[in-house]
């Protein structure tokens, strides 16, 4: 199963509906919603955290959180 953590820089995906419960409330509130398109913008030099763009929000989240959010990779 793909997660945000398995994206490559520049790649996009859609957050899957089933990962709703594993997304922290704060992230949901910042626009990281099931069904939303997410792009991995940049990875920090030490491979963590990840810099993502979701629903117009540019956020940095830790790999640990990102690896819990399942996605469907887009073409």
């Amino acid at each position: 199963m793909n997660t945000i953590a398995s994206l490559h820089i520049g790649e996009m995906g859609y957050i899957s509906e089933e990962s709703l419960d594993s997304i922290p409330l704060k992230l949901l509130e910042m626009g990281c919603l099931p069904g939303a398109e997410v792009q991995l913008v940049q990875i920090a030099p030490l491979k963590d955290p990840l810099y993502i763009c979701v629903n117009g929000s540019h956020l940095a989240i830790r790999k640990e959180t990102a690896s819990k959010i399942k996605i469907l990779k887009s073409e």
């Binding site: 922290p24 704060k26 955290p49 940095a60």
Partner: peptide, 8 residues
């Protein structure tokens, strides 16, 4: 430990 930062 929870971490989320907006990149303005």
């Amino acid at each position: 430990s929870f971490f989320v930062v907006e990149m303005p």
